[in-house]
Every structure is written in C-alpha cells, then in structure tokens.
Write a protein that binds this DNA or RNA. Structure first.
Lengths: 314, 314
DNA sequence: TTCAGTAATACGCTGTGCATATCAAACTTG
DNA sequence: CAAGTTTGATATGCACAGCGTATTACTGAA
C-alpha cells in the first residue's frame, strides 16, 4: 500500500534531488528518508531514482510517477477542502421546491441572497404540487418546500413565511365593485371559478371553509389549475373568484377588481399563509442557513406588509 | 496527514455502512476500525458518519469525501500502473532523429513494428543535420540518431545499420552508360554536382576521398543539399554525380543512369554506411527494445541485400 | 425482562518508521 | 597526493501508531 507520506517524501527527494536537503525539508533525518524511498520503490516494483554515490537522478518511470504523486496529493487536498466546505455549509446542494405561485418577495429575496453569499452552493428550484413536495421532503429529494397548508407527517417542521388576505375578484363592471366593503355572504348566488381540489388541497379547503362561514356553498362554474387563469376567467365573465392578495399585484388586469372582504366572526380563514417546510432529520448546514435567511427576510417583509395594510385600511 | 490506508478503511465503512462487516472485509477487528475512522474524522476536521447506537449513515460531507476517496485511490493506482509500464518499456516516449535520406526499409520496418508492438509509446521522429543530432543525443533530446558518419564523442554508441554502394549517376545519353563497368578515374575531367560540405560532412568527405583514391580532385559545377536535386541536375546535364544506391530505387528518372564503379584498391570508401547512434548513459528500456528491433531488421535486410548484389553482378 | 446486535472504550503488544551513529565512496583542495 | 568534505547507504535502538482481545454501553426485538 502506497501511503501519502511516501508520496510526500518522494516528491521532496525528486524536487531536491538530494537526500539531505529533502530530509531537512521534511523535518527528518536523512537515513530514514533513504529507507523510505527504498521502501516505496520496493512497493511500486520499479526504481524511482538512479543513485550514483555522488548524485541522484530520476528514472523515466520516476519522472512519470512524480506527475502522479503531484496530481494525487493535489486531488486529495482539493477533495478534503471541498468536503470541509460541504460540512461547513458553504458548498453542496440545496433543493427548494415550491407550489407555482409562491414567488413572493421575501422568498425571492432570500433565494437571491443565498445564491450571492454562497456561490459554491448548487441551488436547485423545482415546482411541484404540495403532495409531491411532502414526499420529496420525506425521501430527501427536497430540502425546503414552500406550500400553503401545514403538512401532516410530524417529522416535518413548518414555519409560516407570510400571510395575505383573501380578496374577492370581481369583473370591473360588477355592481358591487364600488362598495366600501363587501360581505362574502352577499355573493352566495354568484357563479364561482375555483382551483381543482386535487391540487393544493389546503388552499381549496380553506376557501371552502370561508364560504361555509359566510353561510353558503359556492356554485362552481369552472375550474382552472393556475391562479392566473382564474383571473382571466373572472375578466371574461365566467364568474367571481376568491384569490390571495398577491394576484392583485402580479396581474395588472384592468378588467378585474380585487375587493377586500369584511371579516366574519373568526376570520382565521380569511388570511392565506405560505409555509416553509423541512424534514426534522435533515442535518444539512445549508438548510439551517437557508431557514435563517428566510426568517430574516420574512420578518422584515411582514413588518412592511403590516404597515402597508394599516395605511390601506385608513 | 491522510494516509491511503485511512481512505481504504473509510471506503469500506461507507460502502458497508456497518463497522463489523467493513472490518471483516479489511481483515481486521472492529474496534481498531472504529478508532481509525475517528482518527480520520479528527484529521479532516469534520464528521464523516452519523452513528446512532444502532446504525451508521454518511453525512453530506462524508458523501462528498467518498467521491474524493474513490477518485484519489483510482488515480494513484492508474498512475502507478502507468509508471510501471514506463519502467517496463511498454509506455513512454522515444525520440528518433534522422538525416533526410535515411528512410530505408530496415529502418522503416523497425519503426512500423515498434509502433505496432508498443502502441502506448509516443514515437517522435525528427529530421535534422548530423551535427544537430549529436547535440540532441548529448542533451537527451534524442534517443536514437540515424546518420552517415561515426560521431566523435565517446559517450555515444554506434552501430552500422546498412551499407550501400556508391554509384555513378550519368545522364542517359552519356557515352559511358553502356559500358559493363566503369573506372572512376576515367571521369576526372567531368563536371560534378555535389552536396555542400556543411551538411553531412561525413558523406562529403567520403566521396572526396573516393575521388582522391581515383587520382583526381572533382571539379564541382554545382551544389545542392537534397540528393533528389542532384539527380535532377544530372538529368539536366549540369554534370555527373556520385550517389548512394538507394537513389536508383527511389527516383525513377529515365534521364539518369546509375552505374556501378569498379573497385579501386581499398574500396572502403566505395560503400556508404548508415549508422544508428545512441547515448551510452541512456537507460530507457524503450531504447534497448528499439535497438534490438533495428538490429533484427538490419540483419535480415542485409542478408537480402547481399543476395541481390550477387545476382546483379552475374 | 432478557437476548441479540451494534459501536465505543480499555489495555497490552507488535511492527513500522524514526533518530543517532557510522560507513563507504567520490569529488575537492591545500 | 593525502586529508577533508560531501554524498548516500547501513546498523542499531527506540517510540508510538495502529492492531487484537476483552469488555462496556446502548438499542431494539422476543
């Protein structure tokens, strides 16, 4: 077995072509160095040096092996450093999954900052439905998952990243558009457009619960998976929709009005949360850092958001 | 210092994820293996495994380092094998230099065979004047040199590869063309074309000595460095020339006749030798093999050549 | 609760690999 | 040309790295 110690000793002798100087460089005496080289030659099965009594020269094979010695030690050293980086959380890979409409500022800010401050980290972002995300967290295919509902498995940790009001999206020519505030119960007889129940069950059920609180079960005229599509459907007069705040900013559609609803009793269902989730056993230091960054951005942003809400409501 | 032993032990544990089995695979007991891994982790500065009391798992950094361990050992092993090949003379590089017109069959045959039987050897062939070749041999820039004269430095070993007669090249309409054999002395008054003295001094002086033996000093009408050019000059009527046998085969020029000369006294100058030269201190096993091949081919060919000479002269 | 299976700890011993001392050869120098 | 210097190799003793055996400590299953 050729130990790295032998490689280093060989390199020293090959560079100095002088056992005494090489030994000095290695902080050892000359005789054991001679023995070490002899040992190495024995293990390799060929001569590395041609020793006249007076001077030392590399053989052809020795010269070839010198290259190998350099590259091997180099490669090892690089690999150690890289692994150390992974351990320290400044290298590696972090997989973030998200539902399609979770690209909010605090999330985007955190992603940007993460990429910038840890350039050696491969940041993988994948969109998928909530149910797939939960599986991905369990199997380790995902490190962080952004979705709307609290996941069930208790090996999963969650944190609310932000919350936003649910607004009623009306066609711009709807008679209620100019009212100061609306009661959802007044719209019991309207046609609704909704997301399908299959995708994002958390989102769907919450909106259903909201209607239930208002005392009716919505008549669903049309379903569409993408929230953008729902806005388009409202604009086209298919019906009205309940949508999160972000859609009012994201889509500058002059044919749709986004109106706040008057709270009804316990209004816990009138706000829609975005949750960051991760697996409890995931020990990746990158995950820790990412969570930290998200929390910072989330707090800063929610402070802003509150302020905006307040000015809006006055 | 991370020894290769530690890498191998780490790989065993990482593959088995089980200290007992890994230890068995390494033909050692479990406790020292545990110690070895602990030692490795200590030297690296980060955890490689997460040990619950019941099972072992790789950390992210451990997983990254496993790659490094594989590639490092692989690289080292490959390098050792390669250096071993160089030592055994089945890999490496052999530089052959030659004067421009030394492409005779035994040389070409040997080069072909060498390339075929040792495909991992880089065979470099360079043309240069004799004097440069001698320098190249001394500096190690050349392993084998083919040239016409015996080189002077006594650290250089030589071997005659082949010898060929010197023929008299006459224009096809020259009155002497049809004679059975010619005396060089009869051509004392003719114009000659020659190679310059500067290139190939051995060649030049030998031809001069040949004329001297014949009792005259040739009147040189024109010089040309390339033997091919000399043939052309003879064809154009510039004069006559003394040329080695090979030119009669190489150039199918119907305007020039190549006539054998009758030997005069000591005819040692009437044959032109091609010599293979190498440095005495050059220990390359490739050189040894090459010399062996050349000698084999040279002997076989010179036997053939003798036979041809004999049939020609009858 | 007991038992089987796992990794860690304790401790003694062996052999690798080091240092010191010395040798042998070859080049240098007065 | 002889003594000194510089070079790598050899001889010998010793320390400690790293192994084995015995044991412990913990976990999960019967």
């Amino acid at each position: 077995m050729v130990e790295t110690r032998l490689l280093k000793q060989f390199i020293a002798v090959a560079e100095e072509l002088h056992f005494h100087r090489a030994a000095a460089r290695l902080n050892m005496a000359q005789p054991p160095l001679s023995q070490a080289i002899a040992r190495l030659e024995d293990r390799l099965g060929f001569q590395l040096f041609i020793r006249s009594k007076r001077e030392v020269a590399l053989t052809l094979a020795g010269s070839a092996f010198l290259e190998t010695a350099y590259t091997t030690l180099n490669h090892l050293e690089t690999g150690i450093q890289r692994a150390r980086d992974v351990a320290g959380g400044v290298a590696g890979r972090l997989t973030v999954t998200t539902v399609s409409l979770a690209y909010y500022e605090p999330v985007l800010d955190a992603l940007r900052q993460f990429r910038k401050s840890l350039p050696n980290v491969e940041l993988v972002i994948q969109e998928m439905p909530s149910s797939h995300q939960v599986k991905a967290l369990m199997t380790g295919n995902s490190d962080v998952a952004f979705m709307r509902h609290m996941p069930i498995p208790n090996s999963i940790r969650s944190r609310k990243v932000l919350e936003e009001s649910i607004l009623l999206a009306l066609p711009i020519d709807h008679p209620s558009v100019n009212k100061r505030s609306l009661d959802l119960s007044d719209f019991a007889q309207e046609d609704f457009v909704f997301t399908p129940q299959a995708l994002g069950p958390g989102y769907y059920h919450q909106l259903m619960a909201l209607c239930e609180t208002a005392g009716f079960y919505p008549r669903i005229k049309q379903e569409a998976a993408q929230l953008h599509t729902l806005v388009g459907l409202v604009a086209s007069g298919f019906g009205i929709a309940l949508l999160p705040e972000c859609m009012a900013n994201a889509v500058l559609n002059h044919k749709v009005a986004f109106c706040p609803l008057r709270p009804i009793g316990d209004d816990s269902n009138a706000v829609l949360g975005l949750y960051m989730n991760w697996h409890h056993d995931n020990a990746s230091p990158l995950l820790t850092k990412f969570i930290g960054m998200i929390e910072t951005h989330s707090e800063r942003h929610s402070a802003q958001a509150c302020q905006l809400d307040w000015t809006d409501s006055t």
